[in-house]
Write a protein that binds this DNA or RNA. Structure first.
Length: 351
DNA sequence: GTGAATGATTCCAC
DNA sequence: GTGGAATCATTCAC
């Protein structure tokens, strides 16, 4: 109960000469009898403001009207606005400068990179191209897969933009509503432009957090789409017969050391129209499966050994040096290797 | 529909 | 970074 008199005294003191919060027009001639009169006026106004909530609606309306028409009202209002602005700045000033949200930046960057946000640029073509390379150049199928990927990405993009537009519209409507409300209220209580600005930024932050959720879920949707598209296991195609033949020929003719060099892998990849990674995968699988069941692969090994022998014989008949199965080593040099040693070699690299 | 074959991926050790 | 081993996902022959 003793709060009110203290506030009143404090506010009344605002009218004192030389008070930093007091505008020039209120300070001029504040001393003497005129100054006492103005202090009394301000005291009256403040008294009316403090008691206005205890009155009936009609009484309050009448008081409100009287206050609005009071000759000292604009000056007092300015003082209250300035005091409030300074108070708000001192309390909130430090909080205004928030660093940009790192998570939001990451999401924005990703959406931009995937072609979901920003200008439409046939988004996802990079991912589609990557998938095409990963799947080993399935050729004709890829264009259909690309269009499928693009269509799905376009759907995600459309949903994202629709939702974003809704949020932005809602944010603008709400901001306008709140600003109108504050402007209306500013006729009866001191609301500084800074305070309105702060309120707007609070609203924007709230809506921004909702937008972040939208961005998060959009990113997840893109990731799922991308992983499905890029998961080549779902799109596995057997190599053609010729490619398998070339790889097997190399494998069995290098049974002593079935580890093709990078150069050999590149050459094989070129010959088979597959990627170097696919060549590595193929040799990895082949080594394991051969080692696990040599007996099963023996027939195949013999077949390719015979084939190699025939090739060598052909070369020999054309004046070449070799007349037994020859095996180029990893450096591409020819070394003499009896067929019967193939299992011994396999034992060597399997240990 | 089922099982073998096979290309790709993942995890781990070196 | 590379290769081995296990596993997955798909294809293919029956």
């Amino acid at each position: 109960m003793d709060e009110q008199p203290r506030l009143m005294h404090s506010h009344a003191g605002v009218g004192m000469t030389g008070h930093p919060g007091l505008p020039q027009h209120m300070q001029e001639g504040a001393g003497g009898a005129d100054g006492d009169g103005r202090k009394q006026d301000i005291g009256d106004i403040l008294q009316q403001i403090m008691t206005i909530t205890d009155q009936s609606l009609d009484e309050a309306q009448a008081r409100k009207h009287a206050l609005n028409c009071h000759r000292m009202k604009p000056a007092l209002f300015n003082v209250l606005c300035e005091i409030k602005e300074k108070t708000v700045l001192s309390i909130r000033g430090a909080q205004e400068e928030e660093p940009p949200d790192a998570q939001l930046m990451r999401l924005d960057n990703m959406l931009l990179a995937e072609g979901v946000s920003g200008p439409e640029k046939g988004g996802g073509s990079a991912a589609a191209a990557a998938a095409a390379a990963a799947s080993g150049g399935a050729g004709a199928d890829n264009s259909a897969e690309h269009s499928d990927y693009r269509a799905k990405l376009s759907q995600i993009r459309q949903i994202y933009h629709t939702e974003l537009e809704k949020y932005e519209q809602a944010c603008n409507e709400f901001t306008t509503h709140v600003m109108n409300l504050l402007r209306e209220q500013s006729r009866t209580r001191p609301i500084s432009p800074k305070e309105i600005e702060r309120m707007v930024s609070i609203i924007h932050r709230k809506f921004s957090s909702i937008q972040m959720q939208l961005k998060q879920s959009t990113c997840e949707a893109v990731m799922i789409l991308r992983s499905r598209f890029l998961d080549a296991r779902r799109k596995r195609r057997n190599f053609n017969k010729q490619a398998t033949e070339i790889l097997n020929e190399y494998f069995y003719s290098h049974l002593s050391n079935p580890y093709p060099s990078e150069e050999a892998k590149e050459e094989l990849a070129k010959k088979c129209s597959i990627t170097v990674s696919q060549v590595s995968n193929w040799f990895g699988n082949k080594r394991i499966r051969y080692k696990k069941n040599i007996g099963k692969f023996q027939e195949e090994a013999n077949m390719y050994a015979a084939k190699t022998a025939v090739n060598a014989a052909n070369v020999s008949s054309h004046g070449s040096q070799a007349n037994s199965p020859s095996t180029p080593n990893s450096a591409g040099e020819k070394i003499q290797l009896p067929c019967c040693l193939s299992t011994c070699w396999s034992f060597l690299w399997s240990c």
